[in-house]
Simulated assay, not measured.
Amino acid sequence: MMTDEPRSLPPRHGRLWPVFVPSALLLLAAIGWSGFWFYATHEVDAQFQGWQEREAKSGRVYDCSRREIGGFPFRFEVRCADPTISLAAQTAQQFASKIPLTAKLSEILAVAQIYDPTRVIAEFKGPATVEETGQAPFARANWSLGHASAAGLPSVPKRISMEFKDPVVERFVDGAAAPFFSAKQVEWHIRMVEGEFNDHPVLESVLRSEDASVQGVHPVLEAPFNETLHVKLRGLTDFAPKTWPERFREIQTNGGGIDVTESRIQQGETIAVAAGTLALTPAGYLEGQLQMTIAGFERIVPALGLEKALAEGAQPTNVAPGVSSQDVNKMIDSLDRIIPGLGRVARKNANAGLIAGLNLIGQQTTLENRPARAITLRFVDGAILLGPLRVAQTPPLF
């Protein structure tokens, strides 16, 4: 009996398109993403050039020996090699001299994430040298970390922050480097808090420093101190590209001013806080007053050298404009009317005399649970007056 042989079935061909389609879609997505990224980098480069043009109109010219754009696939990077920053007319003195300053760094790297291109973080690599354009450097700066961040489009920034860790600044004196400034950390923030970019903006600025020290200016600044300065600028018409002297002149013309909402300095056991409003005179000098409270007032007097102002024959340069050394002597004499003989003691001990005299002007109070004096710090044509005595002179702002 014969049995039928089993028939051989034709081979079945599997459907392979489900395997290739996802790969093809992934490839198309990669090509599309790459095209988008390269298009976006072109826009980033255009924004960078627009920012350069805006800064140049404000007297700040940025240039690179080589500029590279990278960061593919998820962010944008603009790397500026050997950058130079030329600063023209950024202060009243510079505006008058017409001599720009040039700062040279090692590198600036700016980074933006592709999902938030309006937030840019930049890193600065030192050292940096500063010179009057065409001259030998007169200062050198370095830091362990220096970076900045900006929110908003480059043409319409809403907030800018800068931070430097372990900054050190040296001056060149007769070709040799001499220490000038150092700190553990310095940070600066500025943002728009009122108005619109092109309609009377009000700017808020905060400057902080930790363990800062300044050498070669005044002995009182050489010991480390912590400082916070919080101010508002009122009176700007807009935030179009301008130099800072032009902005300050605009503030004066519009009747604006500088609101010092918080100022705090601590140096060892001495703490000073101040707040108030300052205006600008037609000549560009600060005018107004700050209400200051000082804990450790007795340490401030010898540190500033004010006791010399009350010694016999005090020089008029130590007193307020319009106040003669005779007026200062009369202030000491007035102590005799309170306690007979106190004026004579004051002349023998100028420091004690100054403290007693200023105590008549200020009021006893407390600051952070410590005994303190509340004193009015006045600004008259840029001169800083502590009572009847001139302790410093500020330069014009335009």
Rank of each mutant, 00 (worst) to 15 (best):
S144V: 12
L229C: 09
E53Q: 12
P388T: 14
R208V: 11
A178I: 13
E222I: 01
A89Q: 08
A272V: 08
V173S: 13
V217P: 08
A352H: 12
V220K: 01
D199A: 11
P396I: 03
R79S: 12
F72S: 00
I338W: 06
Y39A: 10
P340A: 02
P282A: 02
H230R: 12
V44Q: 08
Q52G: 11
H42I: 09
K232E: 15
P201C: 08
R373I: 15
F164G: 03
P219H: 10
M162Y: 06
A177S: 13
D259N: 09
G70W: 07
D45N: 10
L16A: 11
F76V: 05
L386D: 13
K104H: 10
I99A: 14
K165Y: 07
L207K: 06
P321M: 00
G256T: 11
A141I: 10
T253K: 14
P73Q: 02
L397A: 04
L26Q: 04
Q289R: 11
Q252I: 12
E269F: 08
R75C: 02
R344K: 14
G216H: 06
Q215T: 13
D238I: 07
P22H: 08
A295W: 01
R75P: 03
R12I: 09
Y62E: 05
V231S: 00
S209I: 09
E204V: 04
S205D: 11
T394L: 15
P18Q: 06
D333H: 01
V217A: 15
F48H: 13
T129A: 08
P154M: 07
Q215H: 13
F180L: 15
R370W: 04
P117N: 01
V186F: 04
R79Y: 04
G341I: 00
A383W: 07
R344S: 10
A372P: 05
F72C: 00
S149V: 07
V61A: 11
T317R: 09
G134I: 08
R347A: 02
T253H: 13
P388R: 08
G71S: 04
Q52Y: 02
L16G: 03
V21H: 01
R378N: 15
L397G: 00
S97A: 14
I361Q: 09
V44C: 03
K242P: 01
P73L: 03
P321G: 02
Q90D: 06
D381W: 11
F379R: 15
F20W: 13
G288K: 10
I338S: 06
G255C: 07
E298L: 00
F124E: 03
V345T: 12
A141M: 11
V345Q: 15
A110T: 12
A356Q: 11
L397V: 00
A303N: 08
L386I: 15
F239C: 03
Q185C: 06
D63C: 06
R370A: 12
